[in-house]
């Protein structure tokens, strides 16, 4: 509901974000007219299948898209327009006020540099900390993310750490300068099930301790329950539904959201005869015609869905959904 964020400033305000790549037959649009916002201190979950544009949106926020990518729209971070900023200004925000944790911690750390070097350079770059001070603070942060013997770990190389440990290091690295917003792109997908829960718990506690806002990108809706304040559902590059987490879990409006929710196993139910899944595959970028991109897989689709694309519009009850025939 709109009341929950009332009185608190917006940390991030994304309006009409477009990401496209040049293709042989015209530009290939991977993110189309995506809008969402994050209130200071709150957590936004972005959920969608691979190719839905969720990671591309994230990389666009960080300015990490490949050079050939064309980005349009507006990204306001604490009142500053990131897409208008010069590269130098955006860089000084990156790693300090705006930090990111990636999917695969195994390949996300530079193999030939010690953990201490990789942590320390963030502090030295953004806060001008000297080497000894940077070391102390890095060790402190490692303790914070639950790594024992931090002094010893600082001297080690990434390959000497387990996957879960490396993701903790990544989180420590992102939190070093006390960012206002932490982006986490599928932070647990590459990890073992047991470690996944630990990392999610860590993200949650770090958020409360540091009071930072967070964007958590995932394909797994279940992950967001109890963690996200708001949730944005993306499909084929577009936002199809946006609601508070409580509302979305209680009453999904878009058939796609409902489908995703049905895929989440619930132990209160009788043991399911099979895991539910949405039949079909999402369309590739550029393969979307004039209608609703989800229509070919949708059980509620009618002739109208194939002809005209539903706009994402706020309804009378304040919720936003892009569907001609939403669930009641």
């Amino acid at each position: 509901m709109s009341a929950e964020g009332a009185g608190r400033a917006l940390c991030l305000d994304v309006r009409g974000l477009n990401v496209a790549y040049p293709g042989v037959a015209g530009p290939i649009e991977v993110v189309r007219d995506a809008s969402f916002e994050v209130v200071e201190g709150q957590c936004l979950g972005i959920v969608g299948e691979s190719g839905s544009g969720k990671s591309q949106s994230c990389l666009a926020l960080m300015g990490l898209l490949p050079r050939q990518a064309r980005v349009g729209g507006s990204i306001r971070f604490r009142g500053r327009e990131l897409l208008a900023d010069g590269a130098r200004e955006a860089r000084s925000l990156r790693g300090r006020e705006l930090a990111m944790v990636f999917q695969d911690p195994i390949s996300a750390l530079t193999p030939h540099l010690r953990i201490g070097t990789q942590l320390g350079e963030v502090l030295r770059r953004h806060l001008g900390t000297n080497a000894a001070e940077a070391r102390t603070r890095a060790a402190l942060m490692l303790t914070h993310v639950g790594i024992d013997h931090p002094e010893q770990r600082l001297r080690q190389y990434p390959h000497q750490l387990s996957g879960g440990m490396r993701q903790r290091v990544m989180i420590a690295m992102a939190c070093l300068c006390g960012p206002a917003l932490l982006l986490a792109d599928e932070p647990t997908t590459a990890l073992d099930a047991a470690v996944q829960a630990q990392v999610i718990a860590l993200l949650r506690s770090m958020r409360t301790e540091l009071g930072m806002a967070m964007v958590l990108v995932t394909h797994d809706l279940a992950l967001l329950s109890g963690l996200a304040d708001r949730i944005v559902v993306m499909y084929a590059g577009r936002v199809v539904e946006s609601a508070s987490a409580a509302e979305l879990f209680a009453r999904p409006l878009h058939p796609y959201t409902a489908g995703l929710l049905a895929c989440v196993p619930r132990w209160t139910d009788a043991p399911p005869s099979r895991f539910a899944s949405i039949p079909g595959v999402p369309p590739g970028p550029g393969a979307v015609g004039g209608g609703c991109a989800f229509a070919p897989r949708c059980t509620r689709a009618a002739a109208r869905c194939l002809q005209s694309r539903p706009e994402l519009a706020p309804r009378a009850d304040g919720r936003c959904v892009a569907c001609h025939f939403p669930h009641a």
């Binding site: 990490l64 860089r91 990636f102 750390l109 193999p111 963030v122 690295m173």
Partner: peptide, 19 residues
């Protein structure tokens, strides 16, 4: 991925390439 991480840390292009 690790060069992407280095860029996400806000390091200068020279530091990303050299280090």
């Amino acid at each position: 991925d690790y060069v992407r991480t280095a860029r996400a840390k806000g390091l200068s292009p020279a530091a990303v390439i050299w280090r």
